[in-house]
Design a binder for these strands. Structure first.
Lengths: 134, 134
DNA sequence: AAAAATGTTTACGTAAAGGTCAAGAATATT
DNA sequence: AATATTCTTGACCTTTACGTAAACATTTTT
């Protein structure tokens, strides 16, 4: 049973399912982030499974505050499937490694912020407790 | 010995020490993020320890991708030191709690991204290893 | 005292990431 | 066939977070 939904979709449906606007998707294509996708008879854009995966990946990164310009670099990862696999890969691993450590840094930053906030919260509640004792 | 550097500084020095521009500092004041600071004789801005702490906190949040508008809400935390401590505090704890969970969410997101990237990296190196065996 | 550095405000410029028409073509629905 | 949706490409508008320049005041250095 091939229940896997591998059917290509059009821009409107895709946008709705990802809760973004069609403008956003066209914009990503405009700046080269999405690459040219297939077009149907009248010129309508058609998105296949891979295109959708790519878009989802972009949104995931964007959600983490990574700029579209930076995503563009990272996003080349998805062009592996195209030719030049052997020549492209070393650079790719480099990019991946650098991004792994960047993510680690960000996580450390967040962790530190969390501590700050929690500590601050404790200070306040302590203060209030002492106030209560009068 | 009062070696604690509690001496107020001017905008240029402050900017340099935090590696931002004076424009940024003035802008934060412009949008109400920094609050009015003291002015010296000729109108020159003067920043004391508290001002600097506040600015550092702002930069910390900004570095994590939180928008200035959002920071503005959170930043009210620093107005505790002013009066109305008792009335302001419940709201404050609410804000803190909500931000703690937001930070937790972000950290989870990053953690998931990290997994994705690492997994991807492994897939590539494995592929290359198999290629090598020919 | 003159020059250089630092400060002030006001105001326009800019890049990023889309939003929002407009006008027309293609497809789907009734 | 007529209407309604959904698509297309432009083109201009908007917000955020400052950059940059102008014109002037103040402070510091020489």
């Amino acid at each position: 049973m091939n229940t896997k939904e591998n059917k290509p979709v059009q821009i409107g449906e895709l946008a709705k399912s990802l809760k973004i606007t069609t403008r956003t998707i066209r914009y990503y294509e405009e700046i080269g982030l999405m690459g040219k996708t297939e077009r149907l008879g009248g010129g309508t854009r058609s998105y296949n499974k891979d295109d959708i995966l790519r878009l989802k990946f972009i949104l995931k990164l964007k959600n983490l505050g990574i700029s579209l310009k930076e995503i563009e670099k990272l996003s080349d990862i998805f062009d592996i499937n195209s030719r030049n696999f052997n020549t492209i890969t070393p650079k790719l691993i480099e990019i991946l490694d650098s991004h792994i450590s960047r993510v680690d840094e960000k996580m450390a930053d967040f962790s530190s912020l969390r501590k700050d906030i929690v500590a601050y919260r404790i200070r306040i509640t302590d203060y209030l407790a002492n106030q209560a004792k009068n």
